[in-house]
């Protein structure tokens, strides 16, 4: 089966600083792949390259078989994108943003969005810009659920969230993924959330992949340790 995400020989520099050289990885359908790494190792960079928002020095990425700089509108419709910081069009209110997005996706699930938002105790006319970080993250998640994409790309989904909202996010995400053979590619630097969520993980270090394994195999190799312990062991303390 063709992988949903495929990156081949990605090399990128910021100025003279090497981010990665000949980075290769794949994400199979139905898997949740977590990209872990310290700050500055290039997690957001690979998200940007994947979505065609950054031109690497060399190499190619494909999603659903399409090159990252030539994604068709149909393919983009199958991808749900969460930007770092849960960035959304914050000049909309709760109702407006749903109305805006609903027209782009024929299978839009309105109920999924509003069901999630019920729990937030926000009014339909509340502007997103007036919401807390946690509330904004739920709006972003609700929009993704309503879109019902085949592939979710989540850049640092836990950024700015307190433990309560982080746990909520992870639970909803897991439930969503399990409901229908979704593929997820996510990045984070909060390791404890990833342990119960991801199937496979890639640990990035400066300039290279340190490790690419299934979570199960990784934890079996390091019994008694949490994923965070393993991460620190592999990448070293600051």
């Amino acid at each position: 089966m063709a992988p949903v995400i495929q990156c081949e020989n990605i090399t990128h520099y910021y100025g003279n600083r090497l981010i990665y050289k000949d980075l290769n990885f794949e994400v199979q359908k139905g898997k949740i792949l977590g990209l872990l790494g310290k700050n500055g190792t290039g997690k957001t960079t690979i998200i940007n390259i994947l979505n065609g928002y950054l031109k690497p020095q060399s190499g190619i990425c494909r999603m659903f078989g399409e090159s990252m700089d030539k994604l068709t509108p149909q393919t983009k419709g199958r991808i749900g994108l969460l930007l770092e910081g849960h960035i959304q069009h914050s000049y909309f209110n709760v109702r407006q943003i749903e109305r805006y997005y609903s027209r782009f996706f024929p299978n839009w699930k309105r109920d999924a969005y509003f069901r999630l938002l019920e729990k937030l105790q926000v009014t339909p006319t509340q502007k997103i810009s007036t919401m807390s970080c946690g509330q904004r993250s739920q709006v972003a998640l609700g929009l993704l659920f309503a879109q019902d994409p085949d592939l979710l790309i989540l850049d640092d989904f836990s950024m700015g969230l307190d433990p309560g909202y982080r746990r909520l996010f992870v639970e909803y995400l897991k439930e969503f993924v399990e409901s229908g053979n979704k593929t997820v590619f996510l990045t984070s630097h909060i390791i404890q959330d990833m342990e119960m969520l991801i199937d496979d993980c890639i640990i990035l270090d400066y300039g290279k992949i340190l490790l690419h394994k299934s979570t199960k195999a990784l934890m079996e190799e390091h019994p008694g340790q949490t994923m965070e312990d393993v991460f620190i062991e592999l990448t070293g303390k600051y």
Binding site: N51, Y53, P73, Q74, K76, G77, I79, L81, L83, G85, I87, Q88, H89, F104, F105
Partner: peptide, 14 residues
């Protein structure tokens, strides 16, 4: 701001 244009360009349209 916050590179929201990424969301706009990610819409399923050319």
């Amino acid at each position: 701001q916050f590179k929201r244009l990424k969301l706009t360009l990610h819409l399923p349209l050319p």
